[in-house]
Nucleic acid binder design. Structure first.
Lengths: 127, 127
DNA sequence: CAGCATCCTGCGTGATACTG
DNA sequence: CAGTATCACGCAGGATGCTG
């Protein structure tokens, strides 16, 4: 099965998936975005909940994750271009279709890892 | 830093999930194991299919992934202790419960990433 | 407020050689 | 056959400081 040329060698959706969500925050970001658009700062704040409180997220990191997600087509960047900068990130259609997948993961994790509901409030996988 | 606490701070199953499958081959390994136990060499060979043919997998890497998966409780190591070494790896109960999750991932990936049918044959998410 | 520029570090990953 | 040992490298990711 000669593969195309530039086509990544993965050959398996799983590899692409792993690459797409590589990074500590990507899944969290998508998940947090499921309830609606969020601003940069809101995402950042949301990421801090449930994490080690002491660790602030480097802008560089978050920025990169956001950009990667955008280029992956999971989220969409909306720049309002106003004086006090305002940028919102929202899920694309593709991103929304990905939410259930994360739900499955969370569900499994909750059952088999028993990682405590904790920080999330209670919006675990119930909705 | 200081993440060796008993109670992980993540607060979210997703983080644990990511950590558990961190590594390029872990998901592939579990997936390949779904059809039954495999020996070290078989896993290695199986991993090469669909990958860049040129890249051999370093034993050190595979070994570590296997060990990590074992410690994660997803797979079980069975050493026959015979002269020509023979070791089989098989999914644990937990590992088997994880297969459907991978199936969902593969399913999503196949639809939204259209990453080619892969070399997996076609037993995508059907079983 | 929402980023980008720069430096630095740990570890995941690959390659090679050796052993039980 | 099934690993372990060692060396080296690239990149994710954290910490600061600065800008439009």
């Amino acid at each position: 099965m000669a593969r195309s040329k530039a086509a990544p060698a993965c050959g398996c959706p799983v590899a692409a998936f792993q690459k797409m969500i590589s990074g500590k925050y990507k899944l969290r970001i998508v998940w947090d975005l499921k309830d609606g658009p969020l601003r940069y700062g809101e995402i950042r704040t949301g990421l801090l909940r449930g994490s080690d409180g002491s660790a602030e997220i480097a802008p560089r990191v978050l920025s990169r994750e956001l950009k990667a997600l955008t280029e992956s087509g999971l989220i969409d960047r909306r720049d309002f271009g106003v004086v006090p900068p305002k940028v919102e990130y929202r899920l694309t259609r593709k991103g929304k279709s990905f939410v259930p997948v994360i739900a499955v993961i969370r569900n499994w994790g909750t059952r088999h890892l028993a990682e405590a509901g904790s920080g999330e409030g209670l919006g675990i996988a119930a909705e």
